[in-house]
Design a protein around this nucleic acid. Structure first.
Length: 501
RNA sequence: GCUGCUAUAGUGUAGGGGCCAAUCAUGCCGGCCUUUCACGCCGGCGACUGGGGUUCGAAUCCCCAUAGCAGCACCA
Protein backbone atom coordinates (compact mmCIF):
# COMPACT_ATOMS: atom_id res chain seq x y z
CA UNK A 1 0.00 0.00 0.00
CA UNK A 2 1.13 3.51 -0.63
CA UNK A 3 1.08 5.92 2.27
CA UNK A 4 -2.07 7.48 0.87
CA UNK A 5 -3.82 4.16 0.58
CA UNK A 6 -2.83 3.25 4.11
CA UNK A 7 -4.15 6.48 5.32
CA UNK A 8 -7.45 6.01 3.56
CA UNK A 9 -7.75 2.51 4.92
CA UNK A 10 -7.04 3.67 8.45
CA UNK A 11 -9.60 6.39 8.09
CA UNK A 12 -12.24 3.71 7.48
CA UNK A 13 -11.08 1.37 10.21
CA UNK A 14 -9.99 3.61 13.06
CA UNK A 15 -10.16 7.34 12.35
CA UNK A 16 -9.35 8.17 15.97
CA UNK A 17 -5.81 6.83 15.52
CA UNK A 18 -5.21 9.44 12.90
CA UNK A 19 -5.93 12.30 15.24
CA UNK A 20 -3.23 11.88 17.81
CA UNK A 21 -0.54 11.60 15.22
CA UNK A 22 -1.63 14.79 13.58
CA UNK A 23 -1.25 17.00 16.58
CA UNK A 24 2.35 16.13 17.19
CA UNK A 25 3.94 19.44 16.62
CA UNK A 26 7.24 20.71 17.74
CA UNK A 27 7.41 23.92 19.64
CA UNK A 28 10.45 25.87 20.57
CA UNK A 29 11.73 25.38 24.06
CA UNK A 30 11.73 22.59 26.56
CA UNK A 31 9.37 19.66 26.60
CA UNK A 32 6.24 20.19 28.66
CA UNK A 33 6.07 18.93 32.22
CA UNK A 34 3.60 16.37 33.44
CA UNK A 35 1.67 16.70 36.71
CA UNK A 36 1.36 20.45 36.75
CA UNK A 37 -1.44 21.53 39.07
CA UNK A 38 -3.62 24.61 38.82
CA UNK A 39 -1.17 26.53 40.97
CA UNK A 40 1.62 25.89 38.53
CA UNK A 41 4.90 24.48 39.76
CA UNK A 42 7.21 24.93 42.70
CA UNK A 43 10.83 24.57 41.79
CA UNK A 44 14.16 25.58 43.20
CA UNK A 45 17.70 26.54 42.53
CA UNK A 46 19.89 25.28 45.34
CA UNK A 47 23.50 26.40 45.18
CA UNK A 48 25.90 26.21 48.07
CA UNK A 49 27.85 29.34 48.87
CA UNK A 50 31.32 27.96 48.39
CA UNK A 51 32.33 30.30 45.58
CA UNK A 52 30.96 32.31 42.70
CA UNK A 53 28.45 30.81 40.30
CA UNK A 54 29.72 29.47 36.98
CA UNK A 55 28.27 28.29 33.68
CA UNK A 56 27.21 24.99 35.20
CA UNK A 57 25.04 26.83 37.70
CA UNK A 58 23.57 28.85 34.87
CA UNK A 59 22.22 25.68 33.32
CA UNK A 60 20.57 24.46 36.50
CA UNK A 61 19.09 27.83 37.32
CA UNK A 62 17.78 28.59 33.83
CA UNK A 63 16.19 25.20 33.29
CA UNK A 64 14.21 25.56 36.48
CA UNK A 65 13.50 29.20 35.74
CA UNK A 66 12.15 28.27 32.33
CA UNK A 67 9.45 26.04 33.75
CA UNK A 68 8.45 28.47 36.47
CA UNK A 69 7.97 31.11 33.81
CA UNK A 70 6.13 28.63 31.65
CA UNK A 71 3.67 27.38 34.24
CA UNK A 72 3.73 30.00 36.96
CA UNK A 73 4.09 29.08 40.62
CA UNK A 74 7.11 29.58 42.81
CA UNK A 75 10.82 29.63 42.27
CA UNK A 76 12.73 29.23 45.48
CA UNK A 77 16.36 30.12 45.85
CA UNK A 78 17.56 27.78 48.54
CA UNK A 79 21.02 28.44 49.82
CA UNK A 80 22.49 25.17 50.96
CA UNK A 81 24.91 26.28 53.59
CA UNK A 82 25.01 23.36 55.97
CA UNK A 83 28.72 22.74 55.71
CA UNK A 84 30.61 25.39 57.68
CA UNK A 85 33.84 24.21 56.16
CA UNK A 86 32.74 25.32 52.72
CA UNK A 87 30.78 28.40 53.57
CA UNK A 88 32.30 31.82 53.71
CA UNK A 89 30.74 35.15 54.48
CA UNK A 90 31.75 36.85 51.22
CA UNK A 91 30.30 34.00 49.18
CA UNK A 92 26.76 34.90 50.15
CA UNK A 93 27.22 38.33 48.67
CA UNK A 94 28.75 36.99 45.47
CA UNK A 95 25.99 34.45 45.16
CA UNK A 96 23.30 37.08 45.38
CA UNK A 97 25.12 39.27 42.87
CA UNK A 98 25.28 36.39 40.44
CA UNK A 99 21.61 35.58 40.93
CA UNK A 100 20.82 39.19 40.20
CA UNK A 101 22.84 39.09 37.00
CA UNK A 102 21.14 35.92 35.82
CA UNK A 103 17.77 37.65 36.09
CA UNK A 104 15.93 34.71 37.58
CA UNK A 105 12.32 35.02 38.58
CA UNK A 106 12.98 34.16 42.22
CA UNK A 107 9.98 34.30 44.52
CA UNK A 108 11.55 33.27 47.84
CA UNK A 109 14.98 32.95 49.33
CA UNK A 110 15.56 30.26 51.93
CA UNK A 111 18.72 29.73 53.94
CA UNK A 112 19.15 26.24 55.26
CA UNK A 113 21.22 27.58 58.11
CA UNK A 114 18.01 29.23 59.37
CA UNK A 115 16.25 25.90 59.47
CA UNK A 116 18.42 23.70 61.62
CA UNK A 117 15.70 23.33 64.28
CA UNK A 118 13.36 21.98 61.63
CA UNK A 119 15.89 19.37 60.61
CA UNK A 120 16.49 18.40 64.23
CA UNK A 121 12.78 18.00 64.77
CA UNK A 122 12.34 15.77 61.76
CA UNK A 123 15.42 13.78 62.60
CA UNK A 124 13.97 13.03 65.99
CA UNK A 125 10.77 11.90 64.34
CA UNK A 126 12.66 9.67 61.98
CA UNK A 127 14.59 8.11 64.83
CA UNK A 128 11.36 7.69 66.75
CA UNK A 129 9.74 5.67 63.99
CA UNK A 130 12.83 3.51 63.63
CA UNK A 131 13.92 5.03 60.35
CA UNK A 132 17.31 6.15 61.55
CA UNK A 133 19.91 5.21 64.12
CA UNK A 134 22.81 6.89 65.77
CA UNK A 135 26.12 5.33 64.91
CA UNK A 136 29.32 5.75 66.90
CA UNK A 137 31.45 3.54 64.70
CA UNK A 138 34.61 4.81 63.13
CA UNK A 139 33.88 5.96 59.60
CA UNK A 140 36.50 3.67 58.10
CA UNK A 141 35.28 0.67 60.01
CA UNK A 142 31.72 1.36 58.99
CA UNK A 143 32.71 1.73 55.38
CA UNK A 144 34.31 -1.67 55.30
CA UNK A 145 31.37 -3.32 56.97
CA UNK A 146 29.01 -1.56 54.58
CA UNK A 147 30.97 -2.70 51.57
CA UNK A 148 30.78 -6.25 52.91
CA UNK A 149 27.01 -5.86 53.47
CA UNK A 150 27.49 -6.29 57.21
CA UNK A 151 25.53 -4.24 59.73
CA UNK A 152 27.35 -2.46 62.51
CA UNK A 153 26.31 -2.98 66.17
CA UNK A 154 24.66 0.45 66.36
CA UNK A 155 22.08 -0.65 63.82
CA UNK A 156 20.32 -2.79 66.44
CA UNK A 157 19.72 0.00 68.94
CA UNK A 158 16.16 0.48 70.06
CA UNK A 159 14.67 3.88 69.14
CA UNK A 160 14.92 4.90 72.83
CA UNK A 161 18.65 4.28 72.82
CA UNK A 162 19.01 6.19 69.56
CA UNK A 163 17.07 9.09 70.96
CA UNK A 164 19.31 9.11 74.04
CA UNK A 165 22.40 9.18 71.84
CA UNK A 166 20.89 11.84 69.60
CA UNK A 167 20.29 14.08 72.59
CA UNK A 168 23.80 13.49 73.84
CA UNK A 169 25.04 14.39 70.37
CA UNK A 170 23.01 17.57 70.44
CA UNK A 171 24.21 18.33 73.97
CA UNK A 172 27.82 18.30 72.92
CA UNK A 173 28.92 15.03 74.46
CA UNK A 174 30.62 13.87 71.29
CA UNK A 175 33.48 15.25 69.27
CA UNK A 176 33.55 15.80 65.53
CA UNK A 177 33.89 12.54 63.67
CA UNK A 178 32.84 10.28 66.51
CA UNK A 179 29.12 10.10 65.93
CA UNK A 180 26.64 10.25 63.07
CA UNK A 181 23.00 9.59 62.35
CA UNK A 182 22.23 7.05 59.63
CA UNK A 183 19.08 6.24 57.75
CA UNK A 184 18.23 2.59 58.14
CA UNK A 185 17.86 1.48 54.52
CA UNK A 186 19.02 -1.99 53.59
CA UNK A 187 22.54 -2.94 54.51
CA UNK A 188 22.50 -5.61 51.81
CA UNK A 189 21.19 -3.28 49.12
CA UNK A 190 22.85 -4.19 45.80
CA UNK A 191 23.88 -0.59 45.32
CA UNK A 192 26.51 0.19 47.96
CA UNK A 193 25.58 3.86 47.71
CA UNK A 194 22.18 3.12 49.24
CA UNK A 195 23.34 1.38 52.37
CA UNK A 196 22.63 3.24 55.62
CA UNK A 197 23.87 6.65 54.55
CA UNK A 198 24.56 9.47 57.02
CA UNK A 199 22.22 12.36 57.59
CA UNK A 200 23.76 14.25 60.51
CA UNK A 201 27.25 14.92 61.72
CA UNK A 202 29.18 17.15 64.06
CA UNK A 203 31.35 20.03 62.91
CA UNK A 204 33.41 21.73 65.62
CA UNK A 205 35.21 24.24 63.45
CA UNK A 206 35.13 26.63 61.77
CA UNK A 207 32.13 28.43 63.23
CA UNK A 208 29.23 28.98 60.83
CA UNK A 209 28.89 32.60 59.71
CA UNK A 210 25.11 32.57 60.07
CA UNK A 211 24.28 30.27 62.95
CA UNK A 212 25.56 28.85 66.16
CA UNK A 213 25.58 25.08 65.85
CA UNK A 214 27.67 21.96 66.07
CA UNK A 215 25.24 19.40 64.70
CA UNK A 216 24.61 19.77 60.98
CA UNK A 217 22.37 17.84 58.63
CA UNK A 218 23.85 16.29 55.51
CA UNK A 219 22.29 17.29 52.24
CA UNK A 220 20.22 14.18 51.70
CA UNK A 221 18.26 14.94 54.82
CA UNK A 222 17.96 18.71 54.66
CA UNK A 223 17.12 18.53 50.96
CA UNK A 224 14.43 15.90 51.43
CA UNK A 225 12.84 17.73 54.34
CA UNK A 226 12.96 21.08 52.58
CA UNK A 227 11.75 19.84 49.25
CA UNK A 228 8.75 18.40 51.00
CA UNK A 229 8.06 21.25 53.39
CA UNK A 230 8.51 23.90 50.73
CA UNK A 231 6.15 22.02 48.42
CA UNK A 232 8.49 21.25 45.56
CA UNK A 233 6.62 19.74 42.62
CA UNK A 234 9.52 19.23 40.22
CA UNK A 235 13.25 19.07 40.71
CA UNK A 236 15.77 19.52 37.93
CA UNK A 237 19.37 18.83 38.82
CA UNK A 238 22.50 17.17 37.51
CA UNK A 239 22.95 13.45 37.20
CA UNK A 240 25.47 13.53 39.99
CA UNK A 241 22.38 13.62 42.20
CA UNK A 242 20.72 10.58 40.75
CA UNK A 243 21.90 8.40 43.63
CA UNK A 244 20.87 11.11 46.08
CA UNK A 245 17.37 11.03 44.70
CA UNK A 246 17.18 7.32 45.42
CA UNK A 247 18.61 7.85 48.88
CA UNK A 248 16.13 10.59 49.59
CA UNK A 249 13.39 8.23 48.53
CA UNK A 250 14.02 6.20 51.71
CA UNK A 251 13.34 9.30 53.78
CA UNK A 252 10.18 10.13 51.84
CA UNK A 253 8.94 6.61 52.36
CA UNK A 254 9.55 6.64 56.09
CA UNK A 255 7.58 9.85 56.41
CA UNK A 256 4.96 8.80 53.92
CA UNK A 257 5.53 11.87 51.77
CA UNK A 258 4.91 11.99 48.03
CA UNK A 259 8.02 12.66 46.02
CA UNK A 260 8.43 15.52 43.59
CA UNK A 261 9.14 14.67 39.98
CA UNK A 262 12.85 14.55 39.20
CA UNK A 263 14.94 15.24 36.12
CA UNK A 264 18.65 14.66 36.04
CA UNK A 265 20.48 16.31 33.23
CA UNK A 266 23.83 14.99 32.02
CA UNK A 267 27.31 16.17 32.64
CA UNK A 268 28.43 19.24 30.71
CA UNK A 269 32.10 19.57 29.98
CA UNK A 270 33.35 23.06 29.32
CA UNK A 271 36.61 23.63 27.55
CA UNK A 272 38.91 26.56 27.74
CA UNK A 273 38.06 27.96 31.15
CA UNK A 274 38.85 27.10 34.74
CA UNK A 275 35.84 25.94 36.72
CA UNK A 276 37.05 24.34 39.89
CA UNK A 277 36.71 26.61 42.88
CA UNK A 278 39.97 25.45 44.39
CA UNK A 279 41.93 26.05 41.19
CA UNK A 280 40.37 29.49 40.81
CA UNK A 281 41.10 30.39 44.39
CA UNK A 282 44.68 29.30 44.11
CA UNK A 283 45.20 31.12 40.82
CA UNK A 284 43.80 34.30 42.26
CA UNK A 285 45.91 34.20 45.38
CA UNK A 286 49.03 33.54 43.33
CA UNK A 287 48.25 36.32 40.91
CA UNK A 288 47.69 34.11 37.90
CA UNK A 289 44.16 35.50 37.69
CA UNK A 290 43.12 39.03 38.44
CA UNK A 291 40.03 38.01 40.39
CA UNK A 292 36.79 36.06 40.16
CA UNK A 293 36.00 37.90 36.95
CA UNK A 294 39.26 37.02 35.23
CA UNK A 295 38.35 36.08 31.68
CA UNK A 296 40.21 32.79 31.92
CA UNK A 297 37.64 31.57 34.42
CA UNK A 298 34.24 30.07 33.76
CA UNK A 299 32.45 32.17 36.35
CA UNK A 300 29.41 34.20 35.44
CA UNK A 301 31.36 37.28 36.41
CA UNK A 302 33.99 36.42 33.82
CA UNK A 303 31.39 35.61 31.19
CA UNK A 304 29.75 38.95 31.81
CA UNK A 305 33.06 40.74 31.61
CA UNK A 306 33.71 39.16 28.25
CA UNK A 307 30.55 40.70 26.87
CA UNK A 308 27.99 37.91 27.10
CA UNK A 309 24.55 38.79 28.31
CA UNK A 310 22.63 36.61 30.74
CA UNK A 311 19.95 36.37 28.09
CA UNK A 312 22.39 34.82 25.65
CA UNK A 313 23.52 32.33 28.26
CA UNK A 314 19.89 31.55 29.01
CA UNK A 315 19.10 30.91 25.35
CA UNK A 316 22.13 28.70 24.97
CA UNK A 317 21.19 26.70 28.06
CA UNK A 318 17.56 26.27 27.08
CA UNK A 319 18.76 25.07 23.71
CA UNK A 320 20.88 22.46 25.45
CA UNK A 321 17.93 21.36 27.51
CA UNK A 322 17.58 18.70 30.17
CA UNK A 323 18.84 15.64 28.33
CA UNK A 324 20.65 12.99 30.34
CA UNK A 325 23.34 12.67 27.73
CA UNK A 326 26.73 14.04 28.64
CA UNK A 327 27.55 16.96 26.42
CA UNK A 328 30.34 19.34 25.56
CA UNK A 329 29.37 22.92 26.04
CA UNK A 330 29.92 24.75 22.78
CA UNK A 331 31.30 28.25 22.89
CA UNK A 332 30.35 28.62 19.24
CA UNK A 333 26.71 28.16 20.09
CA UNK A 334 26.99 30.73 22.86
CA UNK A 335 28.71 33.10 20.44
CA UNK A 336 25.80 32.74 18.05
CA UNK A 337 23.26 33.25 20.82
CA UNK A 338 25.05 36.37 21.99
CA UNK A 339 25.50 37.72 18.49
CA UNK A 340 21.80 37.43 17.81
CA UNK A 341 21.13 39.72 20.74
CA UNK A 342 24.00 42.11 20.41
CA UNK A 343 24.29 42.62 16.65
CA UNK A 344 21.14 44.72 16.30
CA UNK A 345 22.18 47.11 19.06
CA UNK A 346 25.97 47.18 19.26
CA UNK A 347 27.45 50.43 17.97
CA UNK A 348 30.10 50.04 15.30
CA UNK A 349 33.54 51.52 15.64
CA UNK A 350 36.87 51.39 13.91
CA UNK A 351 39.77 49.66 15.54
CA UNK A 352 43.17 49.81 13.90
CA UNK A 353 45.74 47.25 14.92
CA UNK A 354 49.41 47.79 14.26
CA UNK A 355 48.70 51.42 13.32
CA UNK A 356 50.85 53.09 10.69
CA UNK A 357 50.72 56.81 10.16
CA UNK A 358 50.05 57.63 6.51
CA UNK A 359 50.11 61.00 4.87
CA UNK A 360 47.94 60.98 1.79
CA UNK A 361 49.18 63.12 -1.02
CA UNK A 362 46.63 65.25 -2.84
CA UNK A 363 43.70 64.34 -0.65
CA UNK A 364 41.06 66.95 0.24
CA UNK A 365 40.18 67.54 3.89
CA UNK A 366 36.79 66.11 4.80
CA UNK A 367 34.74 64.47 7.51
CA UNK A 368 33.64 60.85 7.22
CA UNK A 369 30.33 59.90 8.77
CA UNK A 370 30.04 56.15 9.13
CA UNK A 371 26.83 54.86 10.70
CA UNK A 372 26.80 53.71 14.29
CA UNK A 373 24.73 50.79 13.11
CA UNK A 374 23.92 50.27 9.43
CA UNK A 375 20.80 48.30 10.35
CA UNK A 376 19.51 51.11 12.52
CA UNK A 377 19.89 54.48 10.81
CA UNK A 378 18.20 56.15 13.76
CA UNK A 379 21.29 55.41 15.82
CA UNK A 380 23.09 58.15 13.93
CA UNK A 381 26.66 58.49 12.79
CA UNK A 382 30.14 59.09 14.00
CA UNK A 383 32.22 61.98 12.69
CA UNK A 384 35.78 61.25 11.72
CA UNK A 385 37.70 64.21 10.35
CA UNK A 386 40.44 63.71 7.81
CA UNK A 387 43.09 66.43 7.75
CA UNK A 388 45.85 64.98 5.61
CA UNK A 389 47.24 62.19 7.76
CA UNK A 390 45.58 59.08 9.16
CA UNK A 391 46.37 55.79 10.86
CA UNK A 392 45.92 52.61 8.85
CA UNK A 393 46.31 48.98 9.86
CA UNK A 394 49.88 48.00 9.04
CA UNK A 395 49.16 44.58 7.67
CA UNK A 396 46.48 45.72 5.25
CA UNK A 397 48.38 48.48 3.55
CA UNK A 398 51.41 46.30 2.87
CA UNK A 399 49.38 43.70 1.01
CA UNK A 400 47.43 45.93 -1.36
CA UNK A 401 48.13 48.25 -4.25
CA UNK A 402 45.01 50.20 -3.65
CA UNK A 403 42.72 50.47 -0.67
CA UNK A 404 39.55 52.32 0.16
CA UNK A 405 39.40 53.83 3.59
CA UNK A 406 35.87 53.18 4.61
CA UNK A 407 33.51 56.11 4.17
CA UNK A 408 36.40 58.23 3.02
CA UNK A 409 38.18 57.75 -0.31
CA UNK A 410 40.51 55.55 -2.33
CA UNK A 411 44.24 55.57 -1.98
CA UNK A 412 46.86 54.18 -4.30
CA UNK A 413 49.94 52.66 -2.72
CA UNK A 414 53.23 52.89 -4.56
CA UNK A 415 56.70 52.23 -3.32
CA UNK A 416 59.74 54.41 -3.35
CA UNK A 417 62.22 51.69 -2.63
CA UNK A 418 60.88 50.13 0.56
CA UNK A 419 58.85 53.12 1.71
CA UNK A 420 55.23 53.28 0.73
CA UNK A 421 53.85 56.40 -0.89
CA UNK A 422 50.12 57.12 -0.56
CA UNK A 423 48.28 59.11 -3.15
CA UNK A 424 44.68 60.15 -3.31
CA UNK A 425 42.84 58.12 -5.93
CA UNK A 426 39.40 59.67 -5.96
CA UNK A 427 36.28 58.99 -3.98
CA UNK A 428 34.50 56.66 -6.35
CA UNK A 429 33.24 53.57 -4.59
CA UNK A 430 32.57 51.96 -7.96
CA UNK A 431 36.16 52.36 -8.93
CA UNK A 432 37.37 50.85 -5.68
CA UNK A 433 35.17 47.86 -6.38
CA UNK A 434 36.40 47.59 -9.92
CA UNK A 435 39.98 47.53 -8.69
CA UNK A 436 39.14 45.04 -5.94
CA UNK A 437 40.51 47.47 -3.42
CA UNK A 438 39.84 46.25 0.11
CA UNK A 439 37.67 48.54 2.19
CA UNK A 440 39.55 49.06 5.40
CA UNK A 441 39.21 50.87 8.68
CA UNK A 442 41.29 53.90 9.63
CA UNK A 443 41.50 56.61 12.25
CA UNK A 444 42.12 60.34 12.15
CA UNK A 445 45.60 61.29 13.19
CA UNK A 446 44.24 63.71 15.75
CA UNK A 447 41.36 61.68 17.04
CA UNK A 448 42.58 58.21 17.94
CA UNK A 449 42.70 56.62 21.36
CA UNK A 450 45.11 53.97 22.51
CA UNK A 451 43.24 50.70 22.81
CA UNK A 452 44.18 47.28 24.07
CA UNK A 453 41.97 44.51 22.79
CA UNK A 454 42.29 41.41 24.94
CA UNK A 455 41.80 38.30 22.84
CA UNK A 456 42.12 34.60 23.61
CA UNK A 457 45.47 34.76 21.82
CA UNK A 458 46.71 37.58 23.95
CA UNK A 459 46.40 41.36 23.96
CA UNK A 460 46.45 43.34 20.71
CA UNK A 461 47.39 46.95 20.99
CA UNK A 462 46.08 49.48 18.57
CA UNK A 463 43.91 52.53 18.28
CA UNK A 464 40.20 53.11 18.36
CA UNK A 465 37.75 55.92 17.85
CA UNK A 466 37.26 58.44 20.67
CA UNK A 467 33.59 57.48 20.71
CA UNK A 468 34.50 54.14 22.27
CA UNK A 469 35.34 55.98 25.46
CA UNK A 470 31.67 56.58 26.02
CA UNK A 471 30.79 52.90 25.81
CA UNK A 472 32.27 51.62 29.02
CA UNK A 473 30.61 48.41 30.15
CA UNK A 474 28.90 48.02 26.78
CA UNK A 475 29.48 45.71 23.87
CA UNK A 476 30.58 47.34 20.63
CA UNK A 477 31.48 45.92 17.28
CA UNK A 478 34.89 46.71 15.94
CA UNK A 479 34.19 46.50 12.24
CA UNK A 480 35.71 43.50 10.54
CA UNK A 481 37.15 42.34 13.86
CA UNK A 482 34.24 41.37 16.02
CA UNK A 483 32.29 42.17 19.14
CA UNK A 484 34.06 43.33 22.21
CA UNK A 485 33.10 44.62 25.61
CA UNK A 486 34.62 47.92 26.64
CA UNK A 487 35.98 47.06 30.04
CA UNK A 488 37.89 50.07 31.23
CA UNK A 489 38.30 53.61 30.00
CA UNK A 490 40.94 55.95 31.33
CA UNK A 491 41.97 59.34 30.02
CA UNK A 492 44.11 58.11 27.17
CA UNK A 493 43.45 54.43 27.03
CA UNK A 494 40.69 51.93 26.39
CA UNK A 495 40.77 48.31 27.45
CA UNK A 496 38.34 45.95 25.73
CA UNK A 497 37.68 42.24 25.78
CA UNK A 498 37.04 40.41 22.55
CA UNK A 499 33.84 38.37 22.78
CA UNK A 500 33.39 36.76 19.38
CA UNK A 501 33.22 37.56 15.69
C1' G B 1 34.84 -4.18 42.46
C1' C B 2 29.51 -3.01 43.09
C1' U B 3 25.14 0.07 41.43
C1' G B 4 22.95 3.07 37.96
C1' C B 5 22.38 6.42 33.68
C1' U B 6 23.34 7.62 28.59
C1' A B 7 24.58 6.77 23.22
C1' U B 8 21.20 10.95 16.37
C1' A B 9 25.88 15.38 11.66
C1' G B 10 32.07 19.07 14.18
C1' U B 11 28.77 21.06 18.40
C1' G B 12 23.81 21.32 20.57
C1' U B 13 18.93 19.44 19.66
C1' A B 14 13.94 17.05 17.63
C1' G B 15 11.99 12.43 16.71
C1' G B 16 9.95 7.13 21.54
C1' G B 17 7.39 1.17 15.78
C1' G B 18 5.31 2.82 9.38
C1' C B 19 4.52 10.14 7.87
C1' C B 20 12.55 9.36 8.73
C1' A B 21 16.55 8.30 1.92
C1' A B 22 15.71 11.77 9.95
C1' U B 23 14.02 18.19 12.52
C1' C B 24 15.94 22.75 13.88
C1' A B 25 19.99 25.73 15.43
C1' U B 26 25.10 26.40 15.15
C1' G B 27 29.45 25.44 12.18
C1' C B 28 31.68 24.89 7.42
C1' C B 29 31.45 25.63 1.79
C1' G B 30 29.29 28.39 -2.46
C1' G B 31 26.26 32.50 -4.15
C1' C B 32 23.39 37.17 -3.42
C1' C B 33 23.04 41.78 -0.70
C1' U B 34 26.29 45.38 1.50
C1' U B 35 31.20 51.50 1.79
C1' U B 36 32.41 45.73 8.07
C1' C B 37 35.23 39.36 6.35
C1' A B 38 28.82 41.82 10.68
C1' C B 39 23.54 41.37 9.87
C1' G B 40 20.01 39.52 6.17
C1' C B 41 18.67 36.19 1.98
C1' C B 42 19.39 31.67 -1.31
C1' G B 43 21.77 26.97 -2.07
C1' G B 44 24.97 23.00 -0.37
C1' C B 45 27.91 19.63 3.25
C1' G B 46 27.22 16.66 7.42
C1' A B 47 24.45 11.79 11.92
C1' C B 48 20.78 7.19 14.03
C1' U B 49 27.97 3.36 18.30
C1' G B 50 28.35 -2.18 16.81
C1' G B 51 26.03 -7.02 16.75
C1' G B 52 21.93 -10.06 17.55
C1' G B 53 16.56 -10.45 18.49
C1' U B 54 11.00 -9.16 18.33
C1' U B 55 7.96 -7.38 14.13
C1' C B 56 5.01 -7.42 7.77
C1' G B 57 8.05 -3.03 9.26
C1' A B 58 13.15 -0.68 14.16
C1' A B 59 16.72 5.63 14.92
C1' U B 60 12.45 4.21 17.94
C1' C B 61 11.08 -2.06 21.71
C1' C B 62 14.39 -6.29 23.97
C1' C B 63 19.33 -8.58 24.76
C1' C B 64 24.60 -8.48 24.42
C1' A B 65 28.97 -5.82 23.37
C1' U B 66 31.58 -1.24 23.22
C1' A B 67 32.23 3.68 24.84
C1' G B 68 31.30 7.76 28.02
C1' C B 69 29.48 9.48 32.61
C1' A B 70 27.75 9.36 37.67
C1' G B 71 27.43 7.31 42.67
C1' C B 72 29.48 3.95 46.49
C1' A B 73 31.89 10.99 52.15
C1' C B 74 30.35 12.14 59.09
C1' C B 75 30.72 17.59 50.82
C1' A B 76 26.84 19.65 47.99
Amino acid sequence: MTPDERRGRLEELAPELLEKKEKKKREAGLRPLAHVGPEGVVMRFAPNPSGPLHIGHARASFLNDYYVREYGGKYILRIEDTDPKRVREENYRMLLEDIEWLGLEISDIVYQSDRLDIYYEYCEKLIGIGGAYVCTCDAEVFREKKNAKVACPCRDHEPEENLRLWRAMRAGDYAEGTITVRVKTDITHPDPAMRDFSIFRIVDAPPHPRCDARVYPLMNFSVAVDDHLLGMTHVIRGKDHIANTRRQQFIYEYFGWPMPEYFHYGRMSIEGVVLSTSAMKEGISQGAYTGWDDVHLGTLKAIARRGFSAEAVRNAMIDIGIGQTDISFSWENLFAANKALVDPIAPRYFFVGDPVSCTIGGAPGMVATPCLNPNDPAAGCRHLPFTGTLYAPGEEITTARMVRFKDLFNVRIDYDGATPVFTYAGSSLEEARREHAPIIQWLPKDAAVQCTLHTPDGPVSGLCEPGVCGEQGKVVQFERIGFARVDEVTEHHVSAYFAHR
